[in-house]
């Protein structure tokens, strides 16, 4: 990442992701039709949401699989606010997620080492190492075997999801880890995993464990 991009992320007065954080902050206490807001149950986000994003994806007892933070927000909307779920990459969803993720900034990524998670982790690792698409490449071949080398002009990162949701300069806006993964998958000419699919949750579970202990820098800016 260039010094300019790093500087953009480090200074909140310049970080464009903070526009979404501000929106998320406003949505936090905005009541739904049934009168309930996030704040009705969770009170003050800087206290109640501290460290929460660093533990996702987390096991959901109802669906019996790990779910992403945005899926958790949607579950709250459905179960507590009688509101319809927001579609993947909806700006309000990204805003809420950014606001919650900000409360874990600087904290270590700490996925639950739950026994129920292990099979998903194992399958996620398999996805990561599986060669896919017409270009027949796996995540691992670039991100484990060749990080730091240049794919055309672009250095290959180590694929640690420390900053999601991110403001990606390429997107000129915010997006989720799922969107980013789908980009790579279409890049190798593979059919991407669907948003919120079990496969996606598995891959994200593996990536989170792989990044365990690294500091969260969400909401990050990436090229």
């Amino acid at each position: 990442m260039s010094p300019a991009t790093q500087a953009m992320q480090k200074d909140d007065t310049q970080n464009p992701a903070m526009l979404w954080v501000k929106d998320g902050e406003a949505l936090w206490s905005k009541p739904a039709a049934n009168g309930k807001s996030c704040a009705s149950c969770h009170n003050d986000a800087p206290k109640s949401m501290k460290g929460i994003a660093a533990t996702y994806p987390a096991f959901d007892t109802q669906s019996r699989r790990p779910i992403h933070l945005s899926e958790r927000i949607n579950l709250c909307r459905k179960n507590k606010q009688d509101a319809s779920p927001l579609p993947p990459e909806h700006q309000d969803l990204l805003s809420m997620e950014s606001y919650v993720a900000l409360q874990s900034r600087g904290m270590s990524i700490a996925p639950h080492r739950d026994k129920r998670m292990s099979e998903f982790f194992t399958r996620g690792e398999k996805h990561y190492k599986q060669r896919i698409g017409q270009l027949d490449l796996s995540c691992a071949q670039c991100h484990d075997d060749n990080p730091g080398k240049r794919l055309a002009g672009t250095p290959i990162p180590q694929a640690h999801p420390t900053g999601y949701p991110i403001y990606r300069l390429e997107w000129q806006g915010m997006g989720s880890l799922q969107r980013r993964i789908r980009n790579c998958m279409s890049g190798v000419r593979a059919e991407p995993f669907a948003f919120n699919s079990t496969e996606m949750a598995e891959l994200e579970t593996y990536l989170a464990s792989r990044a365990a202990g690294m500091a969260m820098d969400a909401p990050a800016v990436r090229p």
Binding site: M18, L19, W20, Q172
Partner: peptide
């Protein structure tokens, strides 16, 4: 649109201050 304004809340008379404004807009 969401906007982020950064202005020092206090300044000395005659001081040159930096003003920073960021606004949500696609600039299509």
């Amino acid at each position: 649109a969401r906007a982020l304004i950064t202005v020092p809340p206090n300044a000395k008379r005659g001081e040159v201050i930096e003003v920073r404004v960021l606004i949500q807009h696609p600039m299509e």
